[in-house]
Design a protein around this nucleic acid. Structure first.
Length: 372
DNA sequence: ACACCTTTGAAGTCG
DNA sequence: CGACTTCAAAGGTGT
């Protein structure tokens, strides 16, 4: 498991099984397509192999359905793909320009092992613009300069655990023009608004039947300026902060993904006294990947159960190359940095006990039992 | 209404 | 320092 945060020693460049895909150009494109198909087939195989173990879970039926759906889908896709490959010259299922609207990945990847990564090598199938705007759009404002100081393969400031200080305005100001006073007027070139930055995009040739699923508000920057937020976590501009959930007793996971504007405005009216907003944890690499890929998996597998989807995504995550994963690790790292910058006093501890209260109570019960 | 499921990774806690 | 726990997203499902 590649851990970029593990001190930079991770030899992301030391690609073992994927090294054979390093060819450039069209050849690589074809090969990557094949790789994708093979990966999916591997997934398919593993799903078949793992079926017995999956059956043991309560979600077995759902998962089985998921796998069957995936299997069916993959088989069809594979068939199509084979046809496509034979016809392929100007792009098959995964055309090169499939990600024209994903600026972040269009950026050079100096933090990747092979900074020579060509645009085509960025054709991470996972990174498609299925949303109105990329969920990680908060990171779009990051400039290349931010990446540059880091070693080609790993940033030196990866040591959040060891050395990252909460205040890194110096660091951040490199790509966020921070006022002396702190995180102020961070202006994003993309804006946080989910403008149809990539209008009509249908990358990867994937159908996008999720318009209802992907409202315009789905991808605001996760961490805009908290300091500018109003009492309800609302940015003065009217843009809510994705990491801040108005405390409504129960945390709304989808607060920022589904009509949160309206929702929050209604709540603002309803709630007269400002309640303490809940600042959520920054998403890790896998969470970012899941967020990105969920819709795709749903489309492919006609699944809805998140548990099953997450299983698939977990397998696909492992099937990713290190380079592909590295992008998400880097995004996650930046999310954490930004989170730290925006909420210097926040700690993950703050949200402890808000979800698994029962477990804790259970533990406490057992403790008290022991003490008795 | 709310916990659970399911995944990985980060961060917190504890011994 | 290692092992363990909790939370982050998501939405169907079960109580």
């Amino acid at each position: 498991m590649p851990q970029l945060s593990s001190g930079g020693g991770d030899d992301l460049g030391a690609n073992d099984e994927m090294i054979s895909f390093k060819d450039e150009g069209e050849q690589e494109e074809k090969i990557q397509e094949n790789a994708f198909t093979e990966r999916d087939l591997a997934d398919l195989k593993s799903s078949l192999v793992n079926e017995s173990e999956i059956n043991q879970s309560p979600n077995a039926a759902a998962v089985r359905r998921a796998h069957q759906g995936e299997q069916r889908d993959f088989q069809e896709k594979h068939r199509e793909h084979l046809d496509g490959v034979s016809k392929h010259q100007d792009g098959g299922m995964y055309k090169t320009p499939a990600y024209p609207g994903y600026p972040f990945l269009m950026l050079p990847d100096p933090y990747l092992p092979n900074s020579s990564v060509s645009p085509s090598s960025n054709k991470v199938s996972v990174v498609q613009q299925s949303h109105g705007m990329h969920p990680l759009s908060s990171l779009l404002p990051y400039s290349n300069e931010h990446f540059s100081p880091s070693p080609p393969h790993l940033p030196t400031d990866m040591s959040q655990k060891t050395g990252v200080h909460r205040h890194q305005s110096q660091d951040l100001s490199g790509y966020y023009s921070l006022p002396p006073g702190g995180v102020g007027q961070i202006t994003s070139p993309m804006g946080w608004q989910s403008q149809p930055v990539y209008p009509g995009l249908s990358p990867c040739g994937f159908r996008q039947p999720y318009s209802s699923n992907l409202p315009g508000s789905s991808s605001y920057s996760r961490f805009p300026h908290s300091l500018m937020l109003g009492p309800s976590g609302m940015h003065p501009t009217g843009i809510p902060h994705p990491a801040i959930v108005p405390h409504t007793g129960k945390q709304e996971h989808d607060q920022y993904d589904r009509g949160m504007y309206v929702k929050q405005q209604v709540e603002v009216k309803r709630e007269k006294e400002p309640k303490k907003p809940v600042i959520k944890k920054p998403l890790n690499a896998f969470m970012l990947y899941m967020k990105e890929m969920r819709a795709k998996v749903i489309a492919e597998c006609t699944l809805k159960e998140s548990a099953a989807i997450n299983q698939i995504l977990g397998r696909r995550w492992h099937a990713l190359t290190r380079e592909e994963q590295a992008k998400y690790y880097e995004l996650a790292r930046k999310e954490r940095q930004l989170h730290m910058q925006l909420y210097p006093t926040w700690s993950a501890r703050d949200n402890y006990g808000k979800k698994k209260r029962r477990k804790r109570e259970k533990l406490q019960d057992s403790n008290t039992d022991n003490s008795l």
